[in-house]
């Protein structure tokens, strides 16, 4: 291993999401791991970071023209990017890792622009090649594997969820938090409001879940069976765009929705349109439940049941609960 420094974005710093644990695991394989936060991490967060081998948390103190940037503004991509770029300059880091969310992609692009760094979006694997970073990507709806070499000194990479199995470090460390000042350029953009959706379902977030059950038009509006199977599996629930547009569920899987690559994806009453496939075809195991034996989703699945989802899903859920008990 080289003496590379890898910075991992921790935003928010009030919890450590599974995707961040995966990033930390990947980062340890590339070098020394440090985190960058835009607010003070909690004691629990620090303990978790320590278990994953993070030695230092760089806590940005962003200010704009002498006034501290506070509250919701701290999560704006421009502010996050300023923090990341300043942290790279401060630590002389070689790699910055972020999860692949829309907000993180925006921050990654701005930070890389500022740093003159190479940018890779949605990497599924990272490795060292003669001191440089090589990122593996799965493209065209998971049908091609590509590898790309970052030729600049600094690499900024967003990594898709489920790219690695989160694994604590062999020995835990006690991270120290170090504040650092960041000057944020004046911005003509005003944040009028920001609301974070609170999820009370107790299910894992769709973009990070290891198992996803998604319902489509074939549910005819009743997501009960989809939710039932998801809960039996501890899975997240998603939808097709059509089902979401009908108002049956609020988040959809696909090229323009949430891109998922879980261990298991189960699509029920979903035909498997190219737009939908683009957001889930990289899943490890694909299962379909569809009443039409000619449904296109059967072309890309590993296992399928031809049948009515209202019969199949509850029976599967009951069987899983029974066998797990």
């Amino acid at each position: 291993m080289t003496n590379r420094t890898v910075l991992v974005l921790l935003d928010p710093a009030t919890e450590v999401r599974t995707s961040v644990l995966e990033l930390l695991t990947i980062a340890r394989g590339l070098g020394r791991v440090e985190a960058v936060a835009l607010e003070a991490p909690t004691v629990e967060v620090l303990a978790q970071l320590g278990a994953y081998g993070v030695e230092t948390v760089h806590q940005a103190e962003p200010a704009r023209g002498g006034a501290s940037v506070t509250g919701d503004e701290r999560h704006l991509p421009a502010v996050v990017a300023a923090g990341l770029a300043a942290a790279v300059r401060l630590t002389d880091a070689d790699v910055v890792l972020l999860p692949t969310s829309f907000a993180a992609k925006e921050a990654a692009a701005l930070a890389a622009h500022d740093l003159g760094a190479g940018l890779v979006i949605d990497a599924a694997a990272l490795r060292d090649q003669d001191g440089r970073i090589v990122a593996g990507k799965r493209v065209f709806a998971g049908s091609w594997d590509t590898e790309c070499l970052v030729t600049s000194d600094v690499a900024v990479v967003t990594v898709r969820a489920n790219s690695a199995v989160a694994q604590p470090a062999g020995t835990a460390v006690e991270p120290v938090t170090e504040g650092f000042a960041v000057e944020v350029a004046p911005s003509p953009v005003t944040l009028l409001s920001r609301a974070v959706k609170t999820d009370t379902s107790g299910r894992p977030p769709l973009d990070q879940a290891a198992v996803v059950v998604a319902g489509g038009r074939g549910t005819d509006g009743d997501f009960g069976p989809v939710e039932d199977l998801a809960d039996a599996l501890g899975a997240a629930v998603g939808a097709s765009r059509d089902a979401a547009f009908e108002g049956w569920w609020d988040t959809y899987v696909g090229q323009t929705g949430v891109t998922v690559a879980p261990r298991v994806y189960i699509g029920a009453g979903i035909s498997g349109a190219p737009h939908h496939r683009g957001g889930m075809q990289a899943s490890q195991v694909i299962i379909a439940v569809n009443s039409d034996p000619e449904a296109p989703i059967f072309e890309i699945c590993d296992f399928a049941v031809v049948g009515q989802l209202a019969d199949v899903l509850p029976q599967a859920a009951a069987e899983i609960r029974k066998r797990k008990a």
Partner: peptide
Amino acid sequence: PEIVTDKGEGGVALAD
């Protein structure tokens, strides 16, 4: 793919 046509046991097959 392994494709099962539901004749009353499709859910069990999926769980299996």
